[in-house]
Amino acid sequence: MPSGFADEKNGERCERSICVNNPHLDSMKEDILYHFNLGTATHDFPAKFGDVKFVCVGGSPWRMKSFTEYIAGELGLAVPNAEYPNICEGTDRYAMYKVGPVLSVSHGMGIPSIAIMLHELIKLLCHARCTDVTVVRIGTSGGIGLQPGTVVVTKQSVDAAFLPRFEQIVLGKSVVRSTELDGDLAEELLQCSRELSEFQTVIGNTMCTLDFYEGQARLDGAFCSYTEEDKQNYLAEAYAAGVRNIEMESSVFAAMCKLSNLRAAVVCVTLLDRQKGDQLSSSHDVLHSYQQRPQVLVGHYIKKKLNIAKKS
């Protein structure tokens, strides 16, 4: 198979190369990453992306452009009046920005959207022959038993039954994959938060759901077949299972990164405590300040790692 690819069936494993477990890619003359508007016949992936060491992904294109501008400043790579072009210009599916060794990509909302993006991102990194890549999802979430504004670094992603698994139907059959994340990376991020001392950060399980309303026990959707007591009992069960926040992407993110041999973490800020309500009541300015917290934490981590690499 091509350099950087590994065949899971044959048990091959890369050290910290990107593992893409698909032998069919060998026979393709060109790999078109349709949703990125990129292709191996039209773009020089090693030249454009070969230096990438960190990938940050988040739902909103605006948020990922903002992160690019922020990390450029943190790494001393900012240029006055610089414009960071969208590498995926020409498609409205995703946005992608790059500054130095950091790639920033939007993934939309929900498991299907981020899964499509990850398939193409993982192949992009492999075609570029990247090694030792760390991928972090930064975003927002609903908290359970936490003050709004608390940042949660995910220990493991669990489903709506609080089980650490991602289930997908492939060829009509159920395939269950692990949602284990890199524990050492989570601890490093927690240590970075202690160094910042700007906001509370905890490590906890993250519940990944298929829906924003009923799937998250909200009472304010178009349909609701349960009571307030039912909701509170369910959230209490989640808390007892170690769940500290709820979002809609972490399970497939964890599963696909693990399959690809990528160090991965999920860092999400909580915008409210779901045990105290379902709708956001904080001001726009307060919510905006909360949303900056994951990028501040991850930016500090990236800067620290690059400084260590320079010294060594």
Rank of each mutant, 00 (worst) to 15 (best):
E30F: 00
C208Q: 03
H43V: 12
R293W: 00
I87A: 01
L272I: 04
H284M: 07
I122A: 03
W62Y: 11
V252L: 06
N10C: 12
L171H: 13
S250K: 07
R293S: 02
C268S: 10
E228N: 12
D220E: 08
K155I: 05
N86W: 07
S260N: 07
V252N: 02
R16T: 07
C257I: 01
T134G: 04
N37C: 07
L124V: 01
L262M: 07
A72L: 05
L196A: 03
K53Q: 11
K98Q: 11
Y234M: 06
N37S: 10
V296L: 13
N37L: 00
S260I: 04
H300C: 05
K155Y: 03
E195M: 08
K53Y: 04
G11V: 14
L190T: 00
G183A: 15
A240Q: 12
C208D: 05
G76T: 09
I308T: 09
L77E: 02
Y226G: 07
N86E: 06
Y70C: 02
G204N: 03
H24A: 14
N261F: 10
Y70F: 15
F36V: 12
Q168T: 13
S157W: 01
T140E: 01
V20H: 03
E74K: 15
L38V: 10
Y239R: 12
L181H: 07
R274I: 00
G59P: 12
A309F: 06
A161V: 10
R165E: 11
S193Y: 02
Q232C: 06
I116M: 15
T270S: 11
P46M: 08
G90D: 05
G221N: 08
Q275F: 11
F36W: 08
S197N: 15
A41Q: 09
P112L: 06
E74T: 11
M64Q: 08
S260D: 04
S225W: 11
S283H: 00
H43T: 13
K305E: 05
R93C: 10
V153M: 08
G277W: 13
S66Y: 11
D92W: 08
T91F: 05
A72P: 14
Q295V: 01
I71G: 05
V202P: 08
K9C: 13
P294N: 09
M248R: 10
Y84F: 14
T40A: 07
I71N: 03
D273L: 03
V170F: 15
I111G: 02
S141D: 04
V52S: 03
T227K: 09
I122Q: 02
F5W: 15
N233L: 13
P112R: 09
F45W: 06
D273N: 14
D184E: 15
L77D: 03
V266C: 12
F49N: 00
R13Y: 04
L259C: 09
H127S: 04
L189S: 02
T270L: 00
N205R: 14
V296H: 04
D44Q: 11
S250G: 14
S104G: 04
N22R: 08
I111Q: 12
E249I: 11
T206S: 13
V286P: 00
N307K: 15
K303W: 04
Y97S: 00
N21C: 15
D31S: 10
T201Y: 01
L219R: 10
D31G: 01
L146S: 04
Q156R: 14
Q275R: 13
D220P: 12
G215Q: 06
N21Y: 12
K173H: 15
M96L: 08
V243W: 04
E30P: 03
P294E: 00
Y226H: 11
N22H: 14
